[in-house]
Structures are given as C-alpha cells and as structure tokens.
C-alpha cells in the first residue's frame, strides 16, 4: 500500500472496533439462549419457591413456608427415602460390576474378546429408557409376566410394596453397567503397562496389583463416575413411574423426589414444586461434595 492517508487510519480504527466486537458476536447466541431459557427460569423458580402461586391471580409471599411445609410433609420424606433407596441399592452392583467386567476385559486373557463383549454389554444403554421401563414392566407383570412364566408363580412383583422398588433397581443395574464399564475401560487403558510389569517383577500378585496400583490410579475416574451417577440417580423419574405405575399415579411407596415436583406442577402449586426442586439441588450438591471429599486425591498419603 502506498497511500497511508487519514482515510485508511480511520478505517483501521473502525476495523479495530469491529475486531473487538467479533468474539461477543460469537458468544451472543449462546448467552441469549442461556439467559432466556436457563438463567431467567432458574431465578424465577427460586422466587416462586418463596411464593404461594397458582399460576393465575395474586401471588402471595410466604417466605420459607413452602420449604417448611415440604419438610413437615410425610410424602416428601417418603420420596427422599425412596430416592436414597434407588441410589444406594444400585450403587454397589453397578460400580463394582462395571469395574470387575472392565478389569476382566482389560486382562491379557480377554483382550481380543473385547471387541465382541464390549458393544454387547453396552447395548442396554442404547435402548431408550421408556422402552426399557415398559419392557421390564411386562417382564415383571403379575400373573402372566415373563418372570412368573419362568418361575411358575403368579406373584405381583410390581404391586407388592416389598418388591416393587427392587424391580426398578434391577432395571437400573441392567441399564447402567455398560455405561460405567466403558468409562472404567477408558480409565484402565490410561494406566501404563510398565507400572504393572514393574510390580510383577517385584513379585506382586494380581490382587495386589489391582488393590495397590490400579484402584489408586483410577481414583479420578471413580470420582467422575460416582458424581455423574449421583447427579443422574437423584433425578430418577421415568424408571419407577413407568415401570410400576404405567400412566397412573405412582404410589408414595415408590415415588422419588421428582414426583413431588411433577405432582405439584400438575396441582398448580408452582411455589411448592419450585421449593422441592431447590431441595433436590441441595441434596445433589451435598452428595456430590461428600463423594469428592471421600475420593479426592490425598496426594502422597500411601506413597
């Protein structure tokens, strides 16, 4: 360029402003949709949780009233208990099962078979939750259900309060093992083979290698898996509702916390529904933080 006059200087100033605007233009669609469809609804639901509001007419400020009536409401505590039941009972079989399967598949003996078994065991995860819940509803159906056909019984698995929640847990375990197996397999492949070989030379046996080397090295993966699982489990909804109740109302003997939210929305108690939502968030937060504290890397504790 030969003529670097005033005009081009102005131009470059203009293009400077333009340049500064560009990143904002790129984030604008995200920020707008975030504000409109997450931030505003979240703040609104926080406000709702302090109101008595039917969706029309005057909203009445009730302070912590919604929260305190939830905490005094026996159905809420039943729902908390059920949610913890689903969470605690599935945790050990899913995590231990998935980890053991991953260990076996990563072992020298099974390496080559991985290609066949891995997708098959992962497959339940691909079946939509709705299809799984309905199929299991039929499998556990009373009188002529598939399980009763095998056992030659006519038990009412899904109607009996003693067994219905266990049926849901069975389904959850069936569905989630493959998911965590894949996560653990990915974690196992990051552990260097040299470490294991060094341990074998030092005379460590297989059990020692797993408990002293593999498990400690996998801690970050376990943490990820446990927190992801907790976040999902406490929001459990479709599984118990469809499997036990179909389209009718789920009994409080099996209803999770999400049901407190949905029944209150259906009943027009938007304040109560919002308060239950925030209590659920608090619960998830507490459990996740507890898991992080339990599983965090304690550095050089055990060398």
């Amino acid at each position: 360029m030969q003529s670097k006059g005033n005009a081009s200087q102005k131009n470059s100033k203009n293009s400077n402003v333009k340049k500064k605007l560009i990143p904002y233009l790129f984030i604008l669609p995200f920020i707008i949709s975030f504000v409109l469809f997450f931030a505003i609804p979240a703040i609104y639901s926080l406000r709702l949780s302090f109101l008595n509001y039917k969706g029309y007419g005057q909203a009445k400020f009730v302070g912590l009233g919604n929260y305190s009536s939830l905490l005094e409401y026996s159905a809420f505590w039943k729902a908390v208990k059920n949610t913890f039941f689903y969470f605690l009972t599935h945790l050990v079989p899913v995590m231990l099962g998935a980890f053991l399967i991953a260990l076996v598949m990563q072992g020298k003996a099974m390496m080559r078979m991985q290609k066949v078994f891995k997708p098959v065991i992962f497959l339940p995860q691909i079946v939509p939750v709705m299809a799984t819940a309905l199929t299991f509803r039929i499998i556990f159906a009373k009188n002529t259900g598939a399980i009763n056909q095998i056992l030659g019984t006519n038990a009412a698995w899904l109607e009996n309060p003693a067994t219905m929640r266990w049926c849901v847990v069975l389904m959850v375990v069936w569905r989630s093992i493959g998911w965590f197996m894949v996560i653990f397999l990915a974690g196992l492949t990051t552990i260097s083979k040299d470490i294991n070989e060094a341990a074998i030379i030092d005379g460590a046996n297989n059990v020692q290698i797993v408990t002293k080397i593999t498990v400690p090295l996998m801690k970050p993966i376990f943490l990820f898996a446990f927190v992801m699982d907790a976040i999902g489990s406490f929001k459990i909804y479709t599984e118990p509702n469809i499997m036990i109740a179909g389209t009718s109302t789920l009994t409080t003997d099996a209803a999770p916390i999400m049901n407190i939210i949905t029944t209150n929305i259906r009943g027009g108690n938007f304040g109560m529904a919002s308060a239950a939502g925030w209590l659920l968030f608090l619960l998830i937060l507490i459990i996740s933080v507890m898991e992080m504290l339990l599983l965090r890397d304690k550095g050089t504790d055990k060398g």
């Binding site: 990143p23 984030i27 469809f37 609804p41 979240a42 639901s45 929001k235 999400m258 939210i261 659920l280």
Partner: peptide, 26 residues
C-alpha cells in the same frame, strides 16, 4: 472472557429440572 466462562461453568451444578415449574409458567 474468563469471568463469563467461569460463571457458566458454575451453573453446570444446577440441574435443569429446577427450571421446570418456571418454564411451564413462562
């Protein structure tokens, strides 16, 4: 840049289900 990104990350802790009553009303 960093502040906005951090704020967004923090909201990942809040489950979307919380907004359900508000979304319904809106």
């Amino acid at each position: 840049n960093k502040v906005i990104f951090m704020l967004l990350l923090i909201t990942m802790m809040v489950p979307g289900e919380i907004t359900l009553p508000a979304i319904y009303l809106m």
